[in-house]
Amino acid sequence: MTEAPRTETELIQLAATGDSDAFGALVQPHLALFHNGIQRILGNTADTQDALQDALMSIHRDLPRFEGRSRFSSWGYKICLNAALMVRRSRVRLHDMERAEGLAIGPFDERGHHTEQDRTPEWQEEAQAHQLVERQEMRECLTRALDELPDSHRMVFVLKDLEEWETDDIARHLQLTPAAVRQRLHRSRTLLQARLRTFVLGGHP
């Protein structure tokens, strides 16, 4: 006779007592989510692997304190994001330099107005764009574009536009002013929008 599958609550209780199989069964359904959250912040690097291991250890350590007020996946995801932020704080940010370019997409005339208005590509309707994101190419292009952003710009974009954090919270975590957060967010969005032209705009890269 096979054993009935355990509920998440039972798995949490067993895992909290040190049952490693229960811990595996508890985490496995959410592992892709946890890994993805960390990878979006740190990129596809060895840091992501380290942060995931740190996060899994923290999840296990804190299980006895998990009160079930939120879903386990949400609670664990927060721990994963914190682990990613901790790793990010500790690493040397060689490429985290300010960039003056990339704030606006021209060409502009001498008065700062657009030229060639008729030839400037238009953002497609969202319905079309939805179909485009199904393409693996889009994911790869966006991942590459994110990897090319300066570190703090990438962090701001991920926390604001993907994780939906408030600007003030991001500023506090990254030790920036809210104005600096908005500036970096704008640069990130502008650079990403330029990189995604082939997918979302009717124009050329």
Binding site: A32, L33, N36, G37, V133, M138, L142, T143, F157
Partner: peptide, 20 residues
């Protein structure tokens, strides 16, 4: 439109990658 597109494009895959 960018945040919505990015969220969908960078959503977690169904299966966790091998390294995870």
């Amino acid at each position: 439109a960018l945040p919505g597109l990015a969220k969908r494009a960078l959503a977690p895959p169904e299966a966790a990658p091998e390294e995870a």
